[in-house]
Design a protein around this nucleic acid. Sequence first.
DNA 1: ACAATAAATGAAAATAATTTTCATTCGGGA
DNA 2: TCCCGAATGAAAATTATTTTCATTTATTGT
Lengths: 279, 279
Amino acid sequence: METILHKIRFSFDSLGPAEQRLASYLLSHTDDIIGLSISELSRRSGCGDATVVRFARRLGLEGYGELKIRLASEMRATSELSAEIQRGDSCLDIFRKRIADIQESLHNTESVLNADDLTRAAEAILRSDRVVVFGLGNSAAIAHDAAHKFLRLGLAAQSCCDNHMQAIVASHLGRGSVAIGISHSGTSRDVVEALRLCKICGATTICITNYGHPPIVDASDIALFTKSDETKHSILAMSSRIAQLAIFDSIYTYIVLNADKSARQAMQNTEFALQNKKY
Amino acid sequence: METILHKIRFSFDSLGPAEQRLASYLLSHTDDIIGLSISELSRRSGCGDATVVRFARRLGLEGYGELKIRLASEMRATSELSAEIQRGDSCLDIFRKRIADIQESLHNTESVLNADDLTRAAEAILRSDRVVVFGLGNSAAIAHDAAHKFLRLGLAAQSCCDNHMQAIVASHLGRGSVAIGISHSGTSRDVVEALRLCKICGATTICITNYGHPPIVDASDIALFTKSDETKHSILAMSSRIAQLAIFDSIYTYIVLNADKSARQAMQNTEFALQNKKY
DNA sequence: ACAATAAATGAAAATAATTTTCATTCGGGA
DNA sequence: TCCCGAATGAAAATTATTTTCATTTATTGT
């Protein structure tokens, strides 16, 4: 979605001098505009009231009122952008900053996630006769989670988070199987090798990795990308993990919606089986 | 951070009839307000212009103009509010709606998460000589993930996702140990029982569960709450899981920041040990 | 029950903000 | 140099917001 701030930046060169003064002011004092009337703004930016209205119209808006509101709502979205986590932050402070990071990461992932690939992946899983999910270390939990979801749908799913098991399982897959490799960096040697083996055996291979072109992509028929800047806080990729989960959630939900009766029955069976495990 | 929408909801009962009509209208047609003048709004909500201004003032704002802008900027956070996921949605559509759900859930969790409890939990873990994390089914992956993180910090952490193992491990804990139980519903019988046993043995018990007062809370010294409305899309609690992860992320980060030299050394050792596992 | 008082409310007046109109300026080309 | 058209802002016209105040509605004390 094209933001107004973007539009201002983009159209800057095509503006007349007075409108450029106005645009500069808006770009560098975006926060202030919320409290300003049109005449205050025109005074501060050194142009006339009419110029402000013209400017708003040029951006495709109704008038100054709409400009003000649009900028106000874009402001907030940008201002929450993750402050650096630092020593001395309380645990709740950290939580808040994590939220901002996660949001940013999800948003970025949305923009690099290819709709066709995502659908192809979901369809492949939906139609598969067996699903295995590979992940090591940090990605193991995601693999477990994904396999758990698919199991609930009645699919023959399993997670493999041990490199020997991965090799063994990989060698027994065939056409109709789907293998999913999870690795944030995309350079996890054993996972890549397992995926390669799966591909050789005829399985459909899918990877979930961070945007770029790491080795795991070459071992995959379908590559699903997350995008998150993990350099900020720690060595551990935390935000991309959330994005990975969200991808699996979406695939799971897609399958729930598009599955036939037997899958829905399987879900109900799952629920039923779990009932007496709870208070 | 107190939002205007919150304030409206909160002060609803203390308003007169005309202001209540106005408040109702705003709460149910928040999107519309952006385009409305004060007289349009007063007409639609069945009150006078003056009432609108008074209402805005009561909320601590300057006047109608500020009310409009504040709501507009909160909207965007809210306007992405999860449209119902429906059959026929593409997988990417679903992903987008998932993002909105996740954001909502994180935001709600932030508002029910108690800063002291969170810090106490982090400090208990930081100082513990042993950490065990219990989770079954859907929560098992979270337990694995948490234990994995703590392991990286050099803590004696382990996840237990099998009810026999949980019972065994629980019976061997003691003072100085920390046991963490994860259950969205808070009614997972085996996890609750394991936690109870841990408490009896003298361990500090922590639970992560959805807001309310489920049985698991009584078995816990410290209760950390998530808040997410999972009724929307499926039987599977997906959003609360993300909130749970974010809580563990925060605790992990807190420990990283507050740990002494030896913990940082432990993290470096972890990194070093993993280096040759990658391309 | 019934004033007396206080709170709530909206119509209309007063004020303030926005938009439109239009005269002026400025730059480039004939 | 003069003309044209785009750009601009002052002021008029319009529209929106705020204030005032009379009326209604509820509440309290007798």
